[in-house]
Design a protein around this nucleic acid. Sequence first.
DNA 1: TTGACATATGTGTTATTTACATATATGTTA
DNA 2: TAACATATATGTAAATAACACATATGTCAA
Lengths: 105, 105
Amino acid sequence: MTPLIEPALLLALRDGTAHGYDLADQIADHLGLKRIDHGNLYRGLRRLEDEGIVVSQWNDGEPGRSKRTYALTGAGEELLDVWAQTLQFTKERLSTLLDSYERKP
Amino acid sequence: MTPLIEPALLLALRDGTAHGYDLADQIADHLGLKRIDHGNLYRGLRRLEDEGIVVSQWNDGEPGRSKRTYALTGAGEELLDVWAQTLQFTKERLSTLLDSYERKP
DNA sequence: TTGACATATGTGTTATTTACATATATGTTA
DNA sequence: TAACATATATGTAAATAACACATATGTCAA
């Protein structure tokens, strides 16, 4: 159960650029997971780039395995705002469910 | 985004038996949705019955379209308890995300 | 200098879930 | 009688998530 990866990713990027592998760690930390699926993350990043939510740039010239550095676009920041509302609503629904659960009949 | 249907369903059944169509309304109310997909709900109920989480009984003899009345089993109540913990964890993760969102850099 | 492991980015494939459409039968009401 | 609500269900396509694998570089210890 983790459809929270997208907002966690947008949040991480709002606080600074990062590359995919970094994001995987940050997201896992933030969501309290051991690790998240790398394959799906990279595909997700490609999709977000197609949609104009993020932009990427290859770190050429630097030594080591070449990395793709991602950054949020304006549309990405707007999407994060929408996500925040969604998460807020969801949190309230969870509270309602948990309240019902607590007051047993 | 509604993987909350199962716990909402279990909660509804904890507070009394009901048939599928009823459950659809109760769950939608509880989750603040207009309506939930009936096809998937009935398939879900069948699956839960296979797993021993709920039991059903046809209301024969009574007039009108025949209904299947569902009730929670002991295993169902235990599953609800597990769900409550999961929802609590998820709520905390949402809070963490929302807190990060609020404290903008 | 080789072997193991971490970093880093990806593709392929399967399984699961969700969404949308359709079918059937009965009851109610304009 | 036509439209709409109740009630249960199947069929199928689309979207997600899970799991496995491939490739390339860097580091560090035996």
